[in-house]
């Protein structure tokens, strides 16, 4: 602005480097409006996050009593399949016989199960490649070359510890957070 035609005493209010009171009001007003606009984004963005009812379903209890050694069941955890498998002694031995250096995602069966519960293998039923549901939890389904799970989409094969052994998947089947509530009941999530 070339000349200031504001209030009569605006000249006297100007500081040495030409900053006027109006500049302060300007900056303060725009900053307040800007901060308000940014804060308004919080509800606009967070409404997209999972709602309370979705979060309320985010834990699942599974009763282990009916699962005999060698059997597996498909439960539902967070709207996705959860594989709960009771390993036989032979399957545990097969998993432990594999040297970790042979694995794409090296993890021992012990790391993937709870202490003293080596036979209870609890994993997500979600292939780590593109998210298909692998076969092998149901009775009579193809368990693949390694006796664990087999994904029909792109041929990923998992062993008896649900570790990736062959095919395009990058990682072992995910072990979700869970704990043993009693010896025969787990709480997942």
């Amino acid at each position: 602005m070339a000349t200031d035609t504001g209030t009569a005493d605006s000249e006297t209010l100007a500081t040495e480097d030409g900053v006027r009171r109006r500049d302060f009001i300007n900056i303060a007003a725009v900053s307040a409006a800007g901060a308000g606009a940014v804060i308004t984004l919080v509800p606009l963005v967070s409404q997209m996050a999972p709602s309370k009812d979705v979060l309320a379903e985010s834990t699942t209890e599974v009763d282990l009593t009916p699962i005999k050694p060698g059997q597996a069941i498909k439960a539902m955890f967070r709207k996705q399949p959860l594989f709960v498998r009771n390993l036989t002694a032979k399957e545990i031995a097969a998993a432990n016989a594999v040297p970790l250096s042979d694995l794409r995602d090296p993890q021992s069966l012990e790391e993937r199960t709870k202490d003293g519960k080596l036979n209870w293998l609890i994993t997500m039923g979600v292939c780590t490649h593109l998210g298909c549901v692998p076969l092998g939890a149901g009775e009579g389904e193809n368990r693949g070359e390694f006796g664990g799970y087999f994904c029909p989409c792109h041929g990923s094969q998992y062993d008896t510890a649900a570790r990736i052994r062959k095919g395009p998947a990058p990682k072992n089947l995910e072990v979700p957070e869970y704990k043993f509530e009693t010896d025969t009941k787990i709480v997942v999530g």
């Binding site: 997209m48 996050a49 999972p50 709602s51 979705v54 985010s58 967070r78 709207k79 996705q80």
Partner: peptide
């Protein structure tokens, strides 16, 4: 999870 509003499409 934010895009889907859940852990899987629903």
């Amino acid at each position: 999870i934010w895009l889907l509003g859940g852990f899987a499409p629903d």
